[in-house]
């Protein structure tokens, strides 16, 4: 599927620019062009597919469904899966949260959605597919969804509604379990497609710079960090490496596009994949800007419990990956 990108990269670097394939620079440039194009193409395709799913299952429909049906625990998984396929934007997490509360959705189910939404997002999936292949991508997506499911369930058991902001608590107490019917969207599939494609293109445009910078740093590190450099420090299996990776990751606000190329190099140079995935999850799943936004609807204590629980589960899954991969 991506052969033609490789031909193009070969043609551009070795042919047009005349940089030799056997030189260090030529190999690095070729890698850079190939990876960037491949990832941008994947990103467009994934965002486009998610856009189609979202056009038919908007999040309001999920809320109404969850409000009406008893799923005996399945609601956590459903909310988590939905979080994965919904394009994530940190500025819409607050309206989403309130919307769920108003609809009478249990707090834990709402948390399931909130955990998975940034963790498994279109940019992360495209980057994983492009850099690690579909197996690792599948492992990442599945574990992200499970983490959201279990994390939300555990948070739900803690009866945290008292730690909501006062005005949200009021909403919570007056939640309407009956939500009004969705207004039918009159647009046909063919009418919607251009809009969905444009949305996908906008997302590609908004991260293209990060992808280029990230892959650029990755390409540079490839050539200049000695092989097995990190082996000495990080892959000796010391127990503290996974928690340390997560603690470093939380204040490091970067999106998946910037961080994954660096992670790929770290893995190539000897960092265990589980530690790297835990680092990645900490970076995209727990961000301080999101915490600042959530302050409008939650007390600091609740944010701390939320972040603490998710961080604990990320650390656990890091250990698990290191054991099984």
């Amino acid at each position: 599927m991506f052969d033609w990108i490789q031909y193009f990269a070969d043609w551009l670097i070795y042919g047009v620019f005349g940089v030799g394939a056997e030189t260090h620079l030529g190999a690095a440039l070729n890698f850079f062009v190939y990876d960037t194009l491949k990832i941008l193409l994947l990103l467009f395709l994934i965002t486009f597919l998610m856009g189609i799913v979202n056009a038919y299952f908007p999040v309001e429909r999920l809320r109404n469904f969850l409000g009406r049906n008893k799923l005996h625990g399945g609601e956590y998984l459903l909310a988590s899966v939905f979080g994965a396929v919904t394009p994530f934007c940190s500025c819409s997490s607050v309206p989403l949260f309130i919307g769920f509360v108003q609809g009478g959705i249990p707090l834990g189910v709402t948390f399931s959605f909130l955990i998975t939404s940034p963790l498994v997002n279109e940019v992360a999936l495209a980057m994983f597919l492009g850099m690690f292949g579909w197996k690792t991508t599948l492992i990442y997506a599945t574990s992200g969804i499970l983490l959201g499911t279990v994390g939300g369930w555990v948070l739900g058991k803690m009866n945290l509604q008292n730690y909501l902001s006062d005005w949200v608590k009021q909403l919570w107490e007056n939640a309407q379990h009956e939500t009004e019917a969705l207004e039918a969207d009159a647009q046909t599939f063919a009418q919607r497609l251009p809009g969905i494609a444009r949305g996908a293109w906008d997302i590609v445009k908004s991260v293209v710079l990060y992808v280029i910078i990230g892959i650029g740093i990755g390409a540079a590190m490839h050539g200049y960090v000695p092989e097995n450099f990190f082996n000495e420090y990080l892959s000796g299996g010391q127990w503290w490496t996974v928690p340390l990776a997560v603690i470093i990751a939380v204040p490091l606000y970067a999106n998946a596009a910037g961080i994954l190329p660096v992670i790929q190099v770290l893995v190539a140079k000897g960092v265990p994949l589980g530690t790297a995935i835990a680092f990645m999850m900490g970076t995209v799943g727990l961000s301080l800007p999101e915490a600042t936004l959530l302050k409008k609807v939650m007390t600091m204590k609740l944010i701390a419990i939320f972040f603490g629980t998710v961080a604990a589960f990320i650390i656990l899954s890091g250990y698990l990956f290191n054991l099984i991969l």
């Binding site: 809320r63 309206p95 309130i98 919307g99």
Partner: peptide, 13 residues
């Protein structure tokens, strides 16, 4: 203002 926004029952901005 988020409280103002929520009056319109909008979940995605």
């Amino acid at each position: 203002d988020i409280m103002e926004i929520m009056k319109y029952n909008v979940m995605s901005t």
